[in-house]
Amino acid sequence: MKLKLGIIFLLTRVVSYKQESSVSTGNTTFDTSDAYLLTRGRAWSISLSVRNTLSEKFLSASVIGMDTEDLLYRSSLHGKGLSRFWSCVEGYKGPALILISAFSKAGSDNVDAGRKWGLGVLTEDGFENKDTFYGSSGFLCATYPIFRMLLPSGKEKNIMYCHLHTQLKTYEATPKPLGLAFGGSIGNERIFIDEDFSKVTIRHHAVDKTYQHGSLIPNQGYLPVEASVLDFEVWGLGGQTTKRQQDIFKKREDIFSGQRRKIDLAAFGNWEDSPEKMMMDMVSDPNKARREER
C-alpha cells in the first residue's frame, strides 16, 4: 500500500512539474523539459535500470530535471567534432552520460531508412585520450523509439575508446582510428562515432563481448549500420566537486598553454654571430676567404 502511494505521489509530482515547465506562446505550448536529449522520461527509465548510486541522481532528474550546469557538451551548442568535444570534457574525472540522436541514411537494407532513433552510454570513468580501450564499468542503452538498457557482460572491459590527434605527432605503421567508441574491439566497435561527429556506426552484438546482447536500433541486422548524427550530449554526473576539479584542471592547462606560446627572442641570440648565418654564407660563396679572429 505504501509503495502504491509513493508511486502515485511521484507521478503527481512529475505531472505538476511538467505543467510548470511548459511555456505558452499564443496557442502553442512548448515543454522545456524536453529541450535536451535527456528528458525526464528517459531519466526515469535509467533510474529503474541501474543499481548503483547514480540511480538516485536520475530519479531526482526525472522529477525536477537535470541541472544545466551538469551539461558538459552539446553539439548544437558547442559545435560538432572530436576536438570541440575534448575541449569541453577534458579533465572531467567522474561518471558521465552520453546521448546521441541519429538519422538512418536512405538506401540501407539493414535498418529502417529515413528513421530517427537514439542511444546512450553511461560510463563511470572519466574521459582519456588513448589509442586503446579503457574503463571499469559502463552501460549501453537504446533511448528512442523504445528504451532498452544493456548491462556489462563481465567477459571483457572494452568499455570506452577516445582517441584524437595530439600536438606531438609520431609515425604509426597502422594508425588507430580517430573518434569515440564503445564495446567491441578496434576496427569492430559496437558503437563508433567518427572524428567529425557527423556519422555513427552501429554493429551487431556478435562482435562485442563487453556488453550484453541486444539490438540498439530498430530492426538491426547483422551488417554495420551507418547513420547521420543529429545531436550529441554529454552530462556530468560527478557532482559539484568533480566539476570544480575540472575547472581547476582547465585553468592550469590554460596557463601552461600560454607559457608555451611565449617566445623568448633574446634566447635566439644575434643572427650575425650565429652558426646558421655562417653556414648560409659558406653555401652562398664557398670560395670566399675567411680569417679566423683571434
Rank of each mutant, 00 (worst) to 15 (best):
L5R: 01
F9W: 00
L10V: 03
V14I: 11
S16I: 12
Y17V: 11
Y17C: 11
K18I: 04
S24Y: 11
S24K: 15
G26I: 00
D31M: 15
D34A: 14
L37I: 15
L37G: 14
L38D: 09
R42N: 14
W44I: 09
S45R: 14
S47H: 03
S49W: 04
E56Q: 04
S60F: 07
S62I: 03
S62H: 04
V63G: 05
D67Q: 05
T68E: 13
R74W: 02
L77K: 11
K80F: 11
G81Y: 01
S83V: 01
F85I: 05
C88S: 09
V89M: 06
K93H: 14
K93A: 15
G94H: 06
L97G: 05
L97E: 03
I98Y: 07
S101N: 14
F103P: 07
G107W: 03
N110C: 03
D112S: 07
W117M: 15
L119A: 14
E124T: 12
D125T: 06
G126V: 11
F127R: 11
F127T: 14
D131T: 05
T132A: 02
S136V: 00
S137L: 10
G138E: 05
L140K: 10
F147I: 12
R148C: 13
M149K: 03
N158A: 03
Y161A: 06
L164P: 02
E172V: 04
L180N: 10
G183M: 09
G183E: 12
N188E: 14
I193M: 13
D196Y: 08
S198M: 11
V200G: 08
T201D: 06
H205P: 10
K209R: 04
T210L: 01
Q212G: 10
P218V: 07
N219E: 13
N219V: 04
L223N: 10
V225K: 00
V225Q: 02
S228C: 06
V229C: 09
F232T: 05
F232S: 01
G236A: 05
Q245D: 12
Q245L: 11
I248T: 12
K250F: 07
R252M: 12
E253G: 10
F256Y: 11
I263S: 09
I263F: 07
D264H: 07
A266E: 10
A267S: 09
F268W: 08
P275Q: 00
E276V: 14
M278I: 03
P286F: 01
R290N: 02
R291S: 03
E292Q: 01
E293F: 01
